Simulated scan of single mutants.
Amino acid sequence: MNGARRAAIGALPGALPRWVLIPALLGAAVILVPVVAMLARVPWPRVPELLLSEGSLAALALSLQTSAVSTLLVLLLGVPIALVLARRTFPGQRVARTLVLLPLVLPPVVGGLALLFTFGRQGLLGAQLELLGIRIAFTTVAVVLAQVFVSLPFLVVGLEAGLRSAGTDLERTAATLGARPGTVLRRVTLPLAVPSIAAGALLAFARALGEFGATLTFAGSLQGVTRTLPLEIYLQREIDPDAALALSAVLIGVALAVLLATAGSLRRGS
């Protein structure tokens, strides 16, 4: 009887065979063990001293500033994109969604090259901007553009999924009662999407903070101008490994804080 009861419980929706835990634990170990191994090598007593060096402070400040600006741009651009993809049907919609998500699968260096051939001195738009005295490549603006390029899909993916899961019943009801599209957007759609927007913005910020390849290719590594925290870590890896470890610990801490805040935001919205 007990065996039959256990078999019935195992057949319930959501129940899993025990053997699934083995590859699950192995997969978790692939992620966690390297992180733990690195954190074990961090010279914790020297961390404050290492973080207060001129190069570290400049890189940290630049990363926080550019990541904040790029996150604002991602919100301004990504929210409308997600709204269109989730609430409109138009020819070529799948192609449009694929193109928006392309930076997720592109190597960051390729993204940096694409930006360079667009906004560089001889680029598609950069040559015209150069005539106006506007230079983008290898400036702080280039850092922001690189971060926007790689982090925009994170907001779009999360927000579109949130909008689709929320459904359109409330929006249809508001429209039936005479609300205009702009009113429905402000009073119904966006308030419902706030948790998804917040979660997407946090993920975009974290991705921007950790961006390396596109930034190095498109913006270079000039201290105080384009050398962000990941670039400083890469530089310090050969010069002062302890400093690189300390800065890496900071990035891990920020990433964990962002993930916890994202989980909390989604939990409040569910």
Rank of each mutant, 00 (worst) to 15 (best):
G55E: 13
E160V: 05
M1D: 15
R5M: 15
L247A: 05
G126L: 04
L106H: 06
A246Q: 04
P230V: 03
T173H: 11
G162E: 05
L259I: 12
A29M: 14
L129Q: 05
L229N: 02
L64W: 04
T189A: 07
P13A: 09
V254N: 01
T226Y: 04
R46V: 01
A249Q: 07
A40H: 09
E160D: 09
L64C: 12
A257F: 08
S70A: 15
P195R: 03
T168L: 13
D169A: 15
L125Q: 01
G10W: 08
Y234E: 11
V74E: 08
L102E: 02
L163Q: 05
R87Y: 09
A193C: 06
S151G: 05
E49A: 15
G178F: 02
L57F: 06
I31T: 13
W19M: 10
L57Q: 15
L129N: 07
S165M: 11
A257R: 01
G200A: 06
L73C: 12
V100K: 08
A204W: 01
G253L: 02
L104C: 12
L229S: 06
I233C: 09
R164N: 05
V20N: 02
I31F: 15
T98D: 12
L64K: 00
G133N: 03
A179E: 11
R268W: 13
G213E: 08
A7S: 13
V254C: 12
L203P: 03
A219R: 02
S56L: 06
V109S: 11
D169I: 10
P23D: 08
G158Q: 13
R227M: 13
L60A: 15
E49N: 01
P107M: 10
R121C: 01
Q93N: 01
Q236R: 10
L235G: 12
V225K: 10
L235P: 00
F149R: 02
D242A: 15
R135F: 05
I252H: 03
T215P: 04
R87C: 09
S70Q: 07
V148K: 03
G220W: 01
P191S: 05
L102H: 02
A82H: 06
L102F: 10
L73G: 09
S265Q: 10
L106F: 13
T168M: 12
A257W: 03
E54T: 14
R46L: 14
Q93C: 07
L145V: 12
L16Q: 14
A37P: 07
R94W: 14
Q65S: 14
V188E: 10
G3C: 01
L177D: 10
E171K: 03
G120F: 03
D240G: 01
A201W: 02
V225H: 11
D169V: 13
G111P: 04
R172V: 10
A201G: 11
T139N: 05
L209R: 00
P91E: 11
G3I: 14
S165Q: 15
L73A: 13
T217W: 00
L57T: 12
S63W: 04
A61G: 14
A11W: 04
V42F: 10
T183P: 00
L185I: 07
Q65P: 00
L51N: 08
L50P: 09
L152C: 06
V250Q: 03
A142Q: 03
V157A: 12
P45E: 09
A58W: 00
A58H: 05
G111F: 01
R41Q: 15
